[in-house]
Design a binder for these strands. Structure first.
Lengths: 336, 336
DNA sequence: AAGCTGATTGTTAGCGCTAACGTCGGGGGT
DNA sequence: ACCCCCGACGTTAGCGCTAACAATCAGCTT
């Protein structure tokens, strides 16, 4: 790190210092077996002395592998996607990979292709797709791009592997909790229905209600934002048909709480609210939100595990589904 | 994108098809001036026909530039840092750069060095540092690493350039608003004092109060989290010395609101609260939060502007300070 | 008409690395 | 004693690209 102007040392320089050929140095660097202990140590000493670091570009050129994983993400400013990225980054760096990102401002066939092209220009060794739009997977499957693709938030398809939090289980936890409390009229504020998680939660909510012999007719759809939750909350406060609401994420739940508060609807006395995600702030809403925790970092790590196996240097991966967890706080109680 | 098994076309292939030398193709690709219109068009046609894309590794090897910007970030799961990254990524991709990230789980000399080494291994052309710890800049200045560094959230130093939101102005806006409303006892919940923004806001709060001839003795320090805001809020609710609180960020403000609500302290009737950041949820807190908006994406874009000029292909940049904006909602009012 | 200029194109030599193959010697089997 | 094999190295040939220089040719000038 010190010498800023001088040329960086190459294999050749190390070889000279160690009194071997550059190829032997390469072998040491790459942990090839057939190097005697003595030479290995001598080379390692030379590497240390010169502060040698291998040139990624040269290596990539010949191996045709860039040691880089591309992460294609949307909604990166949101808690879930951001933490997933964190998990991926951590696992990738541990495995010696670089992480290149491309954020999508809007999800369209065009923008996806553009980002993928960006990654191919970089010859990434794999792409993690954290764009939980149903459309995305289709778009990706369409262009067969010779590198492994791992999808976040779905189990993938025949062309793409995937890691996800068990949405069905999560919705069951939420709905089950409400049913256990004695609620019979349980509504759902769903996320956009072109989002994988949005439909998954809505379907699981519906299924859980039917299984319990309850009606699943109180369904509304937001756009994940607190604002949309607020609008829906106002309607809900006016109607007062449900005694409990299962909301698709914590942010919409926040909007709901706000609307209920304004309308004089008490939570949980008048209506119970359950969120989804358990973002760090959820425990400080008014009232503290009962919600379903998703471990996004773990999700990201799992993605990277899948990626490594797909690329070929993986160490064998077990599960692809992360279990969610119910966190009970003070936005739920038995109905009046 | 179609041919997955066949070798990707190289300059040579394009050259052959166009009936020119590979160097001429290179010239076309790189927009060198001295190429006749006819050949240029012929080459471009060949490029299009073969779907040629230049090999980054080979190019990097010879030019010693990777077309990659490293973004060193911490707290990526938070609204501010995440959006800054978004701004950087967008600007970088527009300028034809790749964005590589390294997230810091904890900020230490060790972890910073590690991440920087990671970037140097990748021969990044520049590093954007979004780790608003005072310590970070020192650590970075220490190791002179032959590439430009741009710091987010500070104006940098002699070795590092920087882009920031005008924290002083932001704090003035917040405190000024409270003073205008008639408040005389205005407290501050600061962020950690080893964070640049944390001290900047605290100092500006203090300065603004003194200028107005008011006391600046009501200072408490949190860790940016809603939890810490909650703890502080409980104390504040018990003491009831201040009639208004300027909080270092929206999340701590959320905790404060929660604590006040529990303690029966009404906002804004009993005490006014101003936050900082204006994250999208702030408008849906109970009550909706008056806060100071920071345009993080713009901040990220500015960083990239600075980076481009530092690297040398910049188009001349004006300001490095982004103006904050006061957003008045319902958590502030005149004192009783 | 000879020579010069500048625009356009081609040729050559690496960038630093790894894969493939060549070499060399010593130990074990016969 | 001979041969073969295999471990431990070295040598060679690119990977695909760009920089630097060489070559060619048309259009001028004198």
């Amino acid at each position: 790190m010190t010498k800023s102007n001088a040329r960086l040392p190459r294999l050749e320089d190390v070889a000279e210092l160690a009194g071997v050929s550059h190829q032997t140095v390469s072998r040491v660097i790459n942990n090839h077996p057939n190097v005697s202990k003595a030479t290995r140590e001598r080379v390692e000493a030379a590497v240390a002395e010169l502060g040698y670091r291998r040139n990624t570009a040269a290596r990539s050129l010949v191996t045709r592998r860039s040691q880089t994983i591309g992460v294609l993400a949307s909604e990166l400013s949101q808690y879930g996607p951001a933490n997933t990225l964190l998990g991926v980054e951590q696992a990738a760096r541990n495995a010696g990979y670089f992480v290149s990102i491309a954020a999508l401002k809007s999800v369209s066939r065009e923008s996806i292709f553009d980002a993928v092209r960006h990654f191919m220009d970089q010859s990434v060794d794999g792409i993690v797709v954290s764009v939980p739009h149903s459309e995305t997977l289709l778009a990706l499957a369409e262009l067969k791009l010779g590198v492994p693709v791992v999808a976040v938030g779905s189990l993938g398809n025949d062309a793409v592997s995937g890691a996800m939090v068990d949405q069905t289980r999560g919705a069951e936890l939420a709905v089950g909790h409400l049913i256990d409390l004695g609620h019979r009229r349980i509504g759902h504020v769903a996320g956009p229905q072109d989002w994988i998680d949005g439909v998954a939660r809505a379907e699981a909510w519906s299924a859980a209600l039917r299984t319990a012999g309850l009606e699943d007719d109180l369904l509304m759809t937001g756009d994940w934002s607190a604002g949309s939750g607020y609008e829906i909350g106002r309607k809900l406060a006016a109607e007062r048909t449900a005694t409990a609401i299962f909301v698709g994420n914590d942010q919409m739940a926040l909007g709901l709480l706000r609307a209920f508060n304004e309308a004089g609807v008490r939570v949980p006395e008048d209506v119970s609210v359950v969120g989804f995600d358990d973002q760090p702030e959820a425990g400080y809403f008014t009232p503290p939100l009962t919600t379903v925790r998703q471990d996004f970092e773990e999700l990201g790590r799992r993605c990277m595990d899948l990626m490594l196996t797909a690329i070929g240097d993986g160490d064998g991966v077990s599960a692809t589904v992360v279990e969610p967890e119910l966190v009970v706080r003070r936005s739920t109680s038995a109905p009046a």
